[in-house]
């Protein structure tokens, strides 16, 4: 039985207490796997990720890493808990250089010099432009910088919010392929995607969210064939607990 790294249990949360965006969402992400969350616009996918990293308050439910409870931990302590987050937009500091962005992300690392060299090996394009301002990077390069910053602290879990949004098809595939490669190195990835086909092709497991609730979930390959998926996207079927 594979080990669950992240487990979310009956999570209820939102921007204001009386208006939950998420109502009782549960999911698990297994160690060294790629888990995708998909669903129509407004399903609460990004909200879910923001709640997990502590940017939005939890009304009810639990979030655990392994056996450790991280519900309500403040966002600046997430890297310490082994969690990194790549937001959808504004995910690098545009006014800092690439080197400065990485130095900042490596702030708490034990051996930043060595780690920086590793990251530059992994992303040669960043090494090349290390003195440029991050604001000057192309969309794909910026996404790689954001991923590199997330990887800096050698996290166990990386949460990605629509990593392929706004990228060219080629760059989108590169970024998603990279995410897949990371799982081979033992990193657990949880990502939200609009790009359902691309995400499912790479994901191990997939959750479908709509209206802030779990709809269906299963191995990604099976879901691709599941007719329910299409109906949820077309707005027909909703599985709402009685």
């Amino acid at each position: 039985m594979p080990e669950a790294l992240l487990s979310v249990e009956n999570l209820t949360a939102g921007y204001v207490p009386d208006l939950p965006i998420l109502s009782g969402v549960s999911l698990t992400a297994e160690k060294a796997s790629l888990t995708a969350i998909i669903g129509p616009n407004g399903a609460g996918k990004s909200t879910l990720i923001k709640v997990v990293v502590g940017l939005l308050p939890v009304t009810d439910g639990h979030i655990r890493i392994g056996a450790k409870e991280i519900t309500g931990l403040s966002p600046d302590r997430m890297t310490g808990a082994g969690i990194a987050y790549v937001p959808q937009t504004d995910n690098v500091f545009r006014t800092l250089t690439i080197q400065q962005n990485l130095d900042l992300a490596l702030k708490t690392h034990g051996n930043p010099q060595k780690r920086l060299a590793d990251l530059y090996d992994r992303f040669p394009v960043l090494a090349e432009k290390r003195r440029d301002r991050a604001g000057a990077l192309s969309g794909g390069q910026r996404q790689f910088l954001a991923v590199a910053m997330a990887l800096a602290v050698e996290p166990e879990l990386i949460l990605m919010d629509e990593p392929s949004a706004g990228l060219s098809p080629k760059a989108a595939e590169d970024v998603l392929d990279h995410a897949k490669q990371l799982t081979a190195q033992g990193v657990t990835i949880l990502l939200v995607e609009q790009n359902v086909k691309q995400a499912l092709r790479r994901a191990d497991h997939c959750y479908v969210l709509a209206e802030g609730r779990n709809q269906i979930d299963g191995p990604a390959t099976q879901l691709l064939e599941d007719p329910t998926l299409g109906r949820i996207y077309l707005g027909g079927e909703r599985r709402v607990p009685a």
Binding site: F93, T108, M149
Partner: peptide, 12 residues
Amino acid sequence: ENPSLAQVHGVN
């Protein structure tokens, strides 16, 4: 520039 991103990268 971006307080919430800074927090996510461990800035208090």
